[in-house]
Amino acid sequence: MVFGLLVPGDTAAVLAGVAANRGRLDLPTTLVLVVVAAIVGASIGFGTGRIFGARILRWAVFERHRERLDRSGRYFERHGSWAVIFGRFSTFFRTMLPQLVGISSMRYTRFLLTSTIGAIIWGSAMVMAGYAIGQSFTAILQRVDSWAAMVIVALIVLAVVYWKWRRHHRTPTDQP
């Protein structure tokens, strides 16, 4: 769960697509691996929620939110499948939703089916986006002289350093 928040799957999948475009990875294998990794990760999250979720929800801090939690459970009963599928496209929900669904009464078989559908759609979209970015990057490199590319990269780095420096050295009156 923590690793998923620190290193978003979107980034890894897009970079895998770029690597596939550059010939470092096989595209079909990359697609399968990203989808399988997404399914396995979500299944582990579901299991974690199923095993520990009920105990966590009994903590006193959640008592004042009991009505909201019950409403959320009823929402999952009606719309849980769609939440699992479309939750893939949000880093936070992709990371946290399997645990929340594990806490709910959704059966694992239903979760696995909807999670697989979402993983196929999400994984394919992310890897193919990376593949397209890789194609664009290759075309740009063919048209731009390597010295010009280095100058552009240096200017971008200098701009970011200057921006960070200005942000750090602002006086309280400079800030809105």
Rank of each mutant, 00 (worst) to 15 (best):
M1W: 09
F3P: 02
L6W: 08
L6K: 03
D10A: 14
A13Q: 09
A16K: 01
A16I: 02
A16V: 03
G17W: 02
V18A: 04
V18S: 02
V18W: 04
V18E: 01
A19Q: 09
A19C: 09
N21M: 11
R22T: 13
R22M: 14
R24C: 04
L27Y: 07
T29N: 02
T29A: 15
T30D: 12
V32A: 15
L33T: 10
V35R: 04
V36C: 11
A37I: 11
A37K: 10
I39T: 13
A42P: 11
S43W: 12
G45R: 03
F46I: 09
F46K: 04
G47P: 03
G49R: 01
R50S: 08
G53E: 03
G53T: 05
A54Y: 01
R58W: 01
F62A: 11
F62C: 10
R64L: 04
R64K: 14
H65T: 04
H65L: 02
R66T: 08
E67Q: 15
R68P: 00
R68E: 06
R68K: 10
L69N: 04
L69S: 06
L69C: 01
L69D: 05
S72K: 04
F76P: 00
R78D: 09
H79Y: 15
S81N: 11
W82T: 12
W82P: 00
W82M: 09
A83R: 00
V84R: 02
I85W: 05
I85C: 06
F86M: 05
S90M: 14
S90V: 15
S90D: 05
T91L: 02
F93R: 00
R94V: 06
T95A: 15
L100M: 11
L100H: 00
V101P: 05
V101T: 13
V101K: 05
I103S: 00
S105H: 14
M106L: 04
T109R: 15
F111P: 05
F111A: 04
F111K: 02
F111G: 01
L112D: 06
T114D: 12
T116P: 06
I117M: 07
I120E: 05
I121H: 07
W122A: 05
S124E: 05
A125P: 03
M126T: 09
A132H: 00
A139W: 07
A139G: 08
L141Y: 02
L141Q: 07
L141C: 01
R143Q: 13
S146R: 10
W147T: 10
A148G: 09
A148Q: 12
M150E: 09
I152Q: 01
V157Y: 06
L158D: 11
V160M: 14
V160Y: 12
Y162D: 10
Y162G: 02
W163S: 10
W163H: 09
K164N: 07
R167I: 07
R167D: 11
R170N: 00
R170A: 14
T173Q: 14
Q175L: 13
P176N: 05
